[in-house]
Write a protein that binds this DNA or RNA. Structure first.
Length: 350
DNA sequence: CGATTTTGACCGGCGC
DNA sequence: GCGCCGGTCAAAATCG
């Protein structure tokens, strides 16, 4: 099976009517104007805790998203040392569950027109008190050529970073009965609703979504004692886009391991890193000791080819951690987390 | 036959 | 208190 070369971002996202341009930083992270200003000054990659991508095309893409590329001026652990405080203080802003913004934690967000977000966002900010944090990742369609594996890698990095940053939900009330796990949403251009991501899921529910012709599916990780869930639904404004929202942390390694080649091994490391980063959300004291530094160290060698393809030379062969006493690598193909953002047909082409 | 999906019922949070 | 809505349960159906 040949690796697909020169996969464009637009192949993944397509010519969506939901242009990423429609979703400014604020809409992505659901920030108030003040927070957005802080984020702008800090830099997107600062927020991610990634400092070594200054010259990367990926950064250019992100920068084009009104995200300043000043991460090189910030210390690697800017998150923990910066004046803006810990991430959860930045991101735990009143969200807009019924908002027209795409960043809203509740799924209705993706069903409305992004252009209407300003007014409605303001209104909803007044009416909505708080909702779980959600991180929406969106790779801009720049016509930039990525290898398919590069795209996977990039998204793994991003997911990993969000995990590392340890965004936590701030309890709505001190005696809140139910506290949600951090949630991460991915928007995927795909004809397939449920995309392979390396984990095994069992569907436990499906609900009709208000103001949307598309139902929302609920999945739970089939691994015993792993309470990770995910929701899958289609964007109302663009049915070709699938929004996958993850909630919780896997307590086990991905049951699907990569094939034994270079890229696969890197992706495998990334999976581990992502998994580890997620676990760090609950163990912040270990974050600096065991994860952040290894992460940035391993990210440093990241480089891009002259044609813009991302060489998967970062994330050393070594694993950042051993997520558990799981079985050794299987012969199964890597369908890691990032494959949630890739159409299944692309995955099959690998 | 076990695993998975389907689907209506049920529950809890929230706004009015 | 009531209704709406998101999320979950669980029995039945389906799949491999």
């Amino acid at each position: 099976m040949e690796r697909k070369e020169g996969v464009k971002v637009e192949d993944v996202l397509g010519n969506s009517s939901c242009s990423v341009n429609d979703f400014p930083l604020q809409s992505i992270f659901d920030l108030s104007s003040n927070e957005e200003e802080k984020i702008r000054s800090l830099g997107f990659m600062d927020l991610l805790g990634v400092q070594d991508l200054i010259s990367s095309p990926l950064l250019e893409i992100m920068a084009a998203q009104q995200v300043p590329s000043r991460m090189a001026t910030q210390p690697p652990n800017a998150f923990s040392s910066t004046k803006i405080g810990p991430p959860h203080e930045v991101f735990n802003q009143p969200a807009t569950p019924n908002s027209s913004t795409i960043s809203s934690a509740s799924s209705e967000a993706v069903h409305d027109e992004p252009a209407k977000l300003d007014d409605q966002e303001e209104d909803q900010r007044k009416t909505k008190k708080q909702c779980p944090i959600l991180k929406l990742i969106w790779i801009r369609n720049q016509g930039f050529d990525f290898h398919q594996s590069d795209l996977k890698l990039i998204m793994k990095i991003i997911f990993c970073c969000f995990g590392v940053c340890g965004f936590r939900l701030k309890p709505k009330k001190t005696n809140q009965k139910r506290q949600r796990e951090p949630r991460f949403a991915f928007m995927t251009k795909s004809e397939v609703d449920h995309l392979e991501d390396g984990y095994r899921w069992r569907k436990y529910g499906q609900k009709a979504v208000k103001n949307s012709p598309f139902p929302r599916s609920y999945y739970r990780c089939t691994t015993i004692s792993c309470n990770v869930k995910k929701r899958v639904e289609r964007c109302f404004s663009d049915p070709s886009i699938v929004v996958t929202t993850y909630e919780g942390q896997h307590t086990h390694p991905s049951p699907v391991m990569p094939r034994p080649n270079l890229v696969g091994s890197h992706l495998n490391s990334a999976i581990s890193a992502a998994s580890f980063g997620m676990s760090m959300q609950t163990t912040p004291s270990h974050y600096h000791q065991h994860f952040q530094q290894p992460f940035t160290d391993n990210l440093s060698p990241l480089n891009f080819g002259h044609n813009g393809s991302l060489n998967a030379t970062f994330l050393h062969q070594k694993r950042f951690c051993t997520p558990g006493p799981g079985p050794g690598p299987s012969l199964l193909k890597d369908h890691g987390l990032l494959q949630d953002i890739l159409p299944s047909h692309m995955l099959k082409e690998e």
